[in-house]
């Protein structure tokens, strides 16, 4: 019996990707900027960044359970996070990304919401998570910032 040609074996083995946990998963357009910006810097003075593409590094702390259409990435200061929202179907963020380090890129957007809009938004989020929501807990409108997601790299998924 002829021995298997090592080159053929190498080609065969190269057809199988490395286990997912060994790689960073690229989502959407991936990353194009060289330098991340800190979330504290952005939220400290957001106006110059609105409409601009920025890159953030942090931990993926929450993901849309049903459609994978958003994630929250943590900032460099306690209690800070920002939402990274993608178009449904354009990018699908796997739920396994929760708790994993990642880098995201997107365009910073500003939304000035009325109290009713805040209630609608939080009600929707609560429904998505199967939680109860009390509209009385919202006392005023708010301004929020989020990234219109373009691409991401998430480790360990």
């Amino acid at each position: 019996m002829k021995p298997i040609c090592p080159l053929l074996l190498l080609i065969f083995l190269s057809c199988f990707p490395l286990p997912d946990s060994a790689m960073a998963k690229t989502l959407g357009a991936g990353l194009s900027l060289n330098q991340p910006t800190s979330l504290s810097e952005i939220l400290g003075n957001p106006e110059p960044y609105i409409g601009k593409k920025i890159q953030l590094q942090g931990v993926i702390v929450d993901v849309c359970e049903k459609r994978g259409c958003w994630l929250y990435i943590s900032g460099d200061r306690p209690f800070e996070k920002i939402r990274f929202k993608v178009l449904d179907g354009e990018i699908v963020i796997p739920l396994e990304a929760r708790g994993k380090p990642g880098t995201v890129e997107g365009v910073l957007e500003k939304f000035v919401l009325s109290r009713d809009e805040v209630i609608a938004r939080r009600r929707h989020h609560a429904e998505e998570r199967g939680e109860t929501f009390d509209p009385a807990s919202v006392t005023s409108g708010e301004t929020i910032y989020q990234l219109r997601g373009l691409g991401a790299e998430i480790d360990g998924i």
């Binding site: 931990v59 702390v61 943590s74 306690p78 209690f79 996070k81 708790g99 994993k100 380090p101």
Partner: peptide, 10 residues
Amino acid sequence: SPDNVFQPDP
């Protein structure tokens, strides 16, 4: 130990 920790608020 946890893989990661986050506090959304206090």
